[in-house]
Write a protein that binds this DNA or RNA. Structure first.
Lengths: 350, 350
DNA sequence: ATGAAAGCGCTAACAA
DNA sequence: TTGTTAGCGCTTTCAT
C-alpha cells in the first residue's frame, strides 16, 4: 500500500525544474501557477507516485482544527450522557492528529436554547460540526448557515430530511421497532401488549419514536394480528402519576404480560414493576442507560435494544476528521448502525 | 484536557538552563544525564505541563514502527477472515501515526507452521505483535522470546495462562455458553438438545470451546435439569458425513427441536436443516461469518452469538500503538468484550 | 508566476 | 555529562 521510497516535494521540484514553493501551490490548488508548470508538476506527481507526509504538513502549519459537537445537555443518567462520553473517546484517537473537540449543549425542550447554541458554534469557527438534531426546522436553518461557510457537518442519532451533510450515524428506527416486537413476543402470538408513552406537551417537537412505533405495529400486525395494543401516557417528572396510570390500566386489563416503551425511559417503570412481580411478564425497552441496565440485571426488564451512542459519536467525529484533514469522503453517507440486543446474560461487558 | 499553550522542549530547556539535547535525553530515558539535570527537567515538565508533539517527533526520526499480527490463515468465509479485516481498519487509524502493519499467517492445524510464523515475526523486528494463540505451549515459548527482546504483545480471541502480555481482547467464553443456552431455550425447560461438534483428530490442540460448553451445561442444569443433551460429531471436510450423522441422530431422537454448535461452523448444518424443515426448531451458533448470517437471514438459524473479531483486532492494535508511541498502558489488561445477539431482525447492519 | 528561505518541534550525531 | 547543530518534509512569507 504505502510507498516504500519516500518521494518528497523536493524530488518533484527538482524533477520539474521548479521550486518547492510552486509545487506546494499546485498541491493545494491555490492558483498563481502557470498552466504549464501546473501540468508538469501533476505529471511528476503521478509519475513518481508522490504522497504527502502528513506529519511534516501538520508540523509546518501548526494548525489545530476544532470540531464542534452540538447535543442536548446531558444530565447524568440520560441518553445524551452516553453520547457525550463518545466525545472523549474520539478525542483520544483524533486528538493526536491535530483535532480538538468542543461541545455545545442545548435544552432539548427549548428551541431558543438550540438557536443560541448554534450561534455559539458559529462563533467558535469550527472546521466541522457534529449535530444531534431534535428540532427539524431549526436544524435546517443551521445546516444552511454551515453550508454557506463551507463547514462540513455530520448528524448522529437522527437526521432531518434536508441534504448537504457529510455523514449520518444512527439506528434504523423503523427496524428497531420491528426487532423490539420480536424480542417482546419471542415470535409467538400474544393476547395483549401495553405500550407506555411519555406525555409530550405542546411544541412542534417531533416525537422521535414514531418510526419505531410504526415498525413495532407492523410486526404485530403480521405476527400477532389478534393482539390488543393499549397505550398509557405517563409524566416522567411525576413518579406517583406513573404508578397511578399503571395501576389504572392493569385494573382493567389484568392479563397483560407484555410491556414496552419506545424511548430510553423504561427505567421509570421499575418501581411499579417491582411492586407487582410477575415471572411470566416480558418488558422491553431501549438504550443502555445505567438505570436500564440495572433493571436488566435484576430481571425487572427482560430485554433492551441499544446502539452504543458513544460509538456513533466517535464515528461521526472520525469521519469529520478524515474529511477535514484529507478531504476524504466517507464510504457511506448514511450509516445505519447495528442494534444490540441486551439481556441479563450479556449486559455485563457492554 | 489538552494544553492550550504549546510548551516545547525548548521552553523547558530554557526554564532549566539546560539544552534541548539534554531535555530530549531525559524524555527518552536514555541516560547520559546527571541526576540533578534529570530532576530539574522532570520538574519543569510537570510544572509547565509539557506534552510532546507527535508529528515533530515522527518527522524527525522518520521511523515507522511495525506491528506484526500473527493469526491463523484466513480462507474466505472463515472466522479469521473477519479478524484479518480488522487489520485494515486499524491500519487506517494508526497508519497516520507512523505505524505499519504486517501479518503473518499459520495453519491452525499444523504446529510447525506456527513455529515458522513465529520465527518470521521475530525476523521482521516488530515494535509490537498481536497474537491469536491456538497452541498453548508454543505460544508461551514465543511469548518468552518476545519478552526477552522487550517487544510488547497483545492477545486476541483467547489467551494462554501465562502472563507478560500487554493486553487481551476477547469474548468471555464461559458466559458466552451461558448466554447461548438462554437464547436457545428462551428460558423455558426443553426436553432435549443436540450439540453438534467438530471431530478433532490427534494433537494437543486444545479445544477452544470447552469453556463455552461448560457455561452452556451449567445453564441447562439450572434451568432445564431434565433435558437430554446429545452429542454428534461431524467432519467439516466431508459434507456427506454431516448429513449422515444428523440423519442417524434424528432417527433415534425425532423429537429434538433444539440444536447448537459452539464454534463458528453452524453453517455446515444448513443443507441438512433445509432438507428437513421444522418451524418449531431453534438453532443457535456462534460468529458472524457470512454463511452464518445468510442462514440467519433465511431463517435456517435462529440466533447467532457474535463478537466483532475485527473490533478486537483493532483494539489490540491501537492499544499496542499507544504503548509503542507513548508507553501508555491500557486501562484494563483483560478486556472481555460484549457478546452480540444476532437475529434475522438485526443482522442487516452488523 | 516563481524562488528563496525561515521556521514548525523534535531527534541524533558530533563536539566539547 | 552536556551543548550545538543539521536535518525530517512541508508551509508560508517575502522578494523577485
Amino acid at each position: 500500500m504505502a510507498q516504500n521510497e519516500k518521494i518528497t516535494i523536493l524530488d518533484i521540484a527538482r524533477r520539474t525544474g521548479l521550486s518547492k514553493g510552486t509545487v506546494d501551490r499546485v498541491l493545494h490548488h491555490r492558483g498563481e501557477v502557470s498552466r504549464r508548470s501546473y501540468d508538469k508538476v501533476m505529471a511528476a506527481i503521478e509519475e513518481l507516485g508522490y504522497e504527502p507526509n502528513v506529519y511534516a504538513s501538520l508540523l509546518a502549519k501548526g494548525q489545530h482544527h476544532l470540531v464542534a459537537v452540538l447535543i442536548p445537555s446531558h444530565e447524568p443518567g440520560t441518553f445524551w450522557e452516553l453520547a457525550a462520553a463518545g466525545i472523549d473517546k474520539a478525542a483520544e484517537s483524533v486528538g493526536t492528529v491535530g483535532i480538538r473537540m468542543q461541545h455545545f449543549e442545548y435544552d432539548q425542550y427549548d428551541i431558543e436554547s438550540f438557536r443560541a447554541a448554534c450561534a455559539r458554534v458559529l462563533d467558535a469557527e469550527p472546521s466541522g460540526v457534529v449535530i444531534a438534531p431534535l428540532f427539524q426546522d431549526e436544524t435546517d436553518v443551521f445546516a444552511a448557515q454551515l453550508r454557506e461557510r463551507g463547514i462540513p457537518f455530520a448528524y448522529i442519532d437522527s437526521k432531518p430530511e434536508s441534504d448537504g451533510y457529510l455523514a449520518y450515524f444512527g439506528m434504523p428506527l423503523y427496524k428497531s421497532g420491528y426487532l423490539c416486537a420480536d424480542q417482546l413476543t419471542g415470535g409467538f402470538a400474544v393476547p395483549s401488549v401495553l405500550i407506555v408513552r411519555i406525555r409530550r406537551d405542546r411544541q412542534q417537537q417531533s416525537d422521535p419514536t414514531i418510526n419505531r412505533r410504526a415498525g413495532f405495529m407492523d410486526y404485530m400486525l403480521e405476527h400477532s394480528p389478534e393482539c390488543t395494543l393499549g397505550n398509557v401516557f405517563i409524566d416522567p417528572n411525576d413518579p406517583d402519576s406513573i404508578e397511578g396510570a399503571l395501576d389504572a390500566w392493569f385494573r382493567e386489563h389484568p392479563g397483560t404480560r407484555h410491556i414496552v416503551m419506545f424511548n430510553s425511559r423504561i427505567h421509570l417503570l421499575v418501581p411499579w414493576l417491582q411492586h407487582h412481580p410477575d415471572s411470566q411478564r416480558r418488558v422491553v425497552g431501549f438504550d443502555n442507560l445505567k438505570a436500564n441496565m440495572d433493571a436488566l440485571r435484576d430481571g425487572t426488564v427482560s430485554c433492551l435494544i441499544a446502539q452504543h451512542p458513544d460509538e456513533q459519536m466517535r464515528l461521526a467525529i472520525e469521519t469529520l476528521s478524515e474529511y477535514i484533514l484529507r478531504r476524504k469522503l466517507p464510504q457511506k453517507k448514511d450509516n445505519f448502525m447495528h442494534m444490540d440486543i441486551l439481556t441479563r446474560y450479556n449486559v455485563e461487558y457492554y
